[in-house]
């Protein structure tokens, strides 16, 4: 737990430390990842940080051959697709992020439901974008 205000930048700073932090509504106990400072169910702002395990299962994914220019700048292209994914965390919420450690040229072998774990991503430390990166357990 942290007393830090709930914000995207704090979420990103936790990610840089290898932590996937969400927020929990003190009223209805719902957990949100990325964190929300305002509970959309209770319409109130008494929210606390809550750390997730960073593990979950693959819920949906795509191996993207034509990405935006900033992904192309990292060397991704038709021959080197990257995988963006929806991951269902053990705690329940789903997050979007990238999946590494899979063969993106063989997507038939990337299986919905496979177990994933958050990995620390220090390859793009100068990039301020918020993106949890997962890999297969």
């Amino acid at each position: 737990m942290s007393e830090q205000a709930i914000s995207d930048s704090a979420f990103a700073a936790f990610l840089d430390q290898g932590q996937l932090q969400g927020s929990r509504c003190t009223s209805c106990e719902a957990v949100f990842v990325p964190p929300r400072g305002w509970c959309p169910k209770c319409h109130q702002s008494d929210m606390q940080w809550t750390r997730t395990s960073g593990t979950g299962r693959l819920f949906a994914f795509s191996c993207i051959a034509i990405g935006p220019p900033w992904m192309a700048a990292y060397g991704y292209d038709r021959d080197h697709p990257y995988c963006s994914a929806v991951v269902e965390l053990d705690e329940g919420p789903r997050v979007v992020g990238r999946l590494e450690g899979v063969d993106t040229n063989d997507p038939e072998n990337i299986k919905i439901g496979m177990w994933l774990v958050l990995q620390q991503d220090d390859s793009k430390s100068d990039d301020s974008r918020i993106c949890p990166v997962f890999s297969p357990v």
Partner: peptide, 24 residues
């Protein structure tokens, strides 16, 4: 959403992901 964009999702990617969920 910014989260989708920053995860690298394009629209063909978003609907690709939706298709994987539907197929499954």
């Amino acid at each position: 959403s910014p989260y989708e964009r920053e995860a690298g999702f394009t629209y063909p990617g978003v609907f690709g992901a939706i298709a994987t969920a539907y197929f499954d």
